[in-house]
Nucleic acid binder design. Structure first.
Length: 269
DNA sequence: AGATCAACCTGTGAGC
DNA sequence: TGCTCACA
DNA sequence: GTTGATC
């Protein structure tokens, strides 16, 4: 599942391969629900656009474009199974390919998404901004202020993208493990000291995951098809029934808001 | 306000 | 091999 | 992964 570290990896890969290149031709598939801008507008903006840069904003990939009409932005959300891949030549078209941008250099950027939960749009005015704060380098005090009065489970708060943007199921569980906090603890019952540990845990987990190229659970791959390897360092996520790497206790699984949560009953309180 | 569940989709692996 | 169920 | 309805 693409969360902040995976999206960061993809954005860096796209930037490396495509910055400075120009889109020569765009093909858009029939599933219009993926589009948050009309297909016509998407084609008009992308066709002939110079790719200035790609960057990550929360879980969004933002392509900075220069078009005949002026600057524009290409905003991509990968949903659960979206992939942005750069192909060298006209490789065989993968199943579930929904958009192909052929570059002047000859390579193609393809958006592939089996479940079609992703979203694509173009903006021709204004700067794209995510609802919540970036977790990496977030202000410690603001982080505490925004969380500590909530009655919702701490894990639900971490998944709330209007508070912090970019944390998903994997990194919420892994951060809570590092902080020693159970996912169901009410956010307003988490102590100040625990919030300090949680903040540090988030920084560490995200930084390490980015360095590892993200987590390749299910079929996540980066822009050049490379797998991440942070899944090898998961301490609780999808380790239900296995021994805790710290204390040996059995990792537990509970469902919270319809999503699996994994924790060590001994290390996390 | 918060919790739960369904919806949006397809693929995969487990178990019978 | 095929069906169903759980899960991402 | 996100959103919207309902209790």
């Amino acid at each position: 599942m693409p969360e902040l570290p995976e999206v960061e990896t993809v954005a860096r890969g796209l930037h490396k391969r495509l910055a400075g290149d120009r889109i020569r031709e765009v093909w858009i598939g029939p599933h219009k629900k993926l589009l948050q801008s009309p297909a016509r507008q998407m084609e008009r903006v992308l066709n002939g656009a110079l790719i200035v840069a790609f960057r990550r904003v929360g879980k969004h990939i933002v392509g900075q474009l220069e078009t005949a009409e002026g600057p524009a932005q290409w905003v991509i959300h990968l949903g659960m199974t979206g992939r942005c891949l750069v192909y060298d030549a006209a490789a065989e078209m993968e199943k579930h390919t929904h958009l192909v941008a052929t570059m002047e250099s000859g390579c193609e950027m393809r958006y592939v998404d089996p479940r079609r939960f992703g979203k694509l749009k173009v903006l021709t005015r204004g700067e794209f901004h995510a609802a919540g704060a970036e977790p990496l380098g977030a202000d410690r005090e603001k982080f505490y202020e925004r969380f500590h009065r909530r009655k919702t489970p701490i894990k639900s708060a971490l998944l709330n993208q209007t508070l912090l943007t970019g944390i998903g199921n994997i990194y919420a569980d892994e951060s809570l493990f590092r902080a020693g906090i159970r996912p169901r603890r009410r956010a307003d019952r988490v102590t100040r000291a625990e919030y300090e540990r949680l903040y540090d845990g988030i920084q560490q987990v995200l930084t390490e995951a980015i360095a590892a190229g993200g987590s390749s659970v299910s079929d996540y791959v980066g822009a050049e098809g490379e797998r991440g390897f942070f899944q090898l360092q998961h301490r609780v996520y999808q380790r239900t029934g296995e021994p805790c790497l710290v204390c040996g206790a059995e990792i537990q699984r509970v469902v919270l808001g319809g999503r699996s949560s994994h924790y060590c009953p001994h290390c996390q309180r």
